[in-house]
């Protein structure tokens, strides 16, 4: 109980909110490095995932690779990367990009895969090209799942980006490491609360984005189709007539 009170005392201490290495500065650093990692991982994983989902080829390989990547311990990878790249931000960014790729890739290909074959057949039937089908049909219909993948990646990145402080003077991890090493558990606790708050905030924003990304037609069809299962809705699987 005392620890929690001390933790919140640390969080509300004005001295921690101003100057170099203060809470606002670390929060911004943490958010920026997380966004950068998400951007890099997205540029790698999303095109690959879309290609797999669109063509239906290479899915077995993607499942195996993402499964394997998920098993990589991030701290171990970070140490390896830092031994190669040296200290600084490059190594944690590399390690966290590897962490973020599996959910992004899985979201992208399973999103496209979830689009009803009949809808795609219909799109083909009215003469849409591959690119038109991708941008006009597959992408809008799969958006909630693709965003779900981005959401899950963002959550993991923010929660794990504390490791950036392992090799650099960056992010909320600085408070965590220092608190743990000096037995200042109030500081460590306060930092953990900040990381959780940031992660939940970003997760909430993506949840909203996910909700609003459901195409209007699908939403209309859903409201007129009360018998469809919750599971179907969650995965965005739909048999609507677009």
């Amino acid at each position: 109980m005392n620890l929690i009170a001390d933790g919140f005392a640390w969080l509300t201490d004005p001295a921690n909110w101003t100057g170099a290495g203060s809470i606002p500065e670390r929060l911004v650093e943490h958010l920026l490095v997380s966004l950068l990692i998400l951007l890099i991982a997205g540029l790698i994983a999303l095109p690959v995932g879309f290609t797999i989902g669109h063509t239906g080829r290479g899915k077995g390989l993607a499942v195996a690779v993402t499964g394997g990547m998920r098993a990589i311990p991030t701290l171990g990878l970070l140490t390896l990367a830092a031994l190669w790249l040296g200290i600084g931000l490059a190594a944690p960014i590399l390690a966290l990009v590897v962490l973020a790729i599996p959910p992004l890739l899985a979201g992208a290909y399973s999103g496209l895969e979830s689009v009803d074959r009949r809808v795609l057949d219909a799109a083909k039937g009215v003469g849409m090209t591959g690119l038109q089908r991708f941008t006009g049909v597959e992408l809008p219909l799969s958006a909630p799942i693709v965003i779900g993948g981005i959401r899950s990646a963002a959550l993991q990145i923010i929660a794990t980006a504390t490791l950036a402080a392992y090799t650099s003077d960056f992010g909320l991890g600085r408070f965590l490491f220092r608190g743990l090493k000096t037995n200042d558990y109030a500081e460590a606790f306060g930092a953990a609360v900040l990381v959780i708050a940031l992660a939940l905030l970003v997760d909430g924003l993506f949840a909203l984005a996910q909700r609003f990304s459901v195409p209007v037609g699908v939403r209309v069809a859903r409201s007129g189709e009360p018998t469809r299962s919750a599971a179907d809705r969650a995965t965005g699987r739909t048999t609507t007539n677009v």
């Binding site: 140490t79 200290i87 402080a165 392992y166 090799t167 650099s168 003077d169 600085r174």
Partner: peptide, 8 residues
Amino acid sequence: VGFTPIED
């Protein structure tokens, strides 16, 4: 001196 944290 300046300071760079290296947590190992």
